[in-house]
Amino acid sequence: MNRRNTLLAILAVVLAAGLLIIPNRGEKKEIKPEQLLTAINDQARFLSTDAITERIIGGDPTLQLIDVRPAKQFNTYALPNAVNIPLDSILSPSWTQLLHQPGKDKVFYSNGDIEADAAWQVCTRNGVSKVFVMKGGLNHWYNTIIKGIEPSNTASGNDLDLYSFRQSARQYFTGSAEQGADQPAQAESTQKPARVKVERKPVEKSSGGGC
C-alpha cells in the first residue's frame, strides 16, 4: 500500500511539473506570426479615400482618423477631426485607450500608405481590432479630390458619378468648386468699363512635394 501511495504521489508531481514546463501560452492579446501573415494578406483593412471622404462629410461618429505623420506635418494640415499619433509613439500608453475604443473604426493614414500600414500591423499584432488603413493616403486623397482628375470622354456612368462626388467633396474641403485653378478667375464688376482679371496661383506646382 505504501508503494501505491508513493506511486500516486509521483504521478501528481509529474503532472504538476508538466503544467509548469509546457510553454506558457501567456500573451493573450498578441497574435501569432502565422495569423499576422494571414491578416497582412487580407485586403479588407484598406478603405478607399472616397469612402473615408464620404464619412467625413457625413460626420460619421464611428470614424476615428489617426494621422501617423510627424507632428510638424500634422500641424500644417490634417484631415478634419484626425488625431495625431506619430508612428514612433504608436505604442505609447497614452494612446491605448483611444486605440482600444470600442464602436469606432480607427483608420490610419499618412502621406502614402506604407507608414499607415506599418502602424496597422503593430496594432494588429497587439490584438487591437477594428483598425484600418486609408489606401493611397493623403497624397491620393489630394490628387483625386482636391486636384481632381478630369474624366475622359469615354468615361462610364460610374466614373462620372465618382467625379461629381469628388467635386462636391472638394467644395466641402476648400470652399471652392474650381478644379486645379489653372484658369484665372474672371471678375465681375458693377461698372461696365472696369473689368478686373484676378489670376489665381496654380495649385499643382507644389513647392514642397515631389521627388
Binding site: 506635418q73 494640415y77 502621406n111 493623403l138 497624397n139 495649385v203 514642397g208 512635394g209
Partner: peptide, 11 residues
Amino acid sequence: AEMPVLDTAEF
C-alpha cells in the same frame, strides 16, 4: 511613397 504630394502649407 511617403513624400507629400502637396505643399501642405500652401494648401
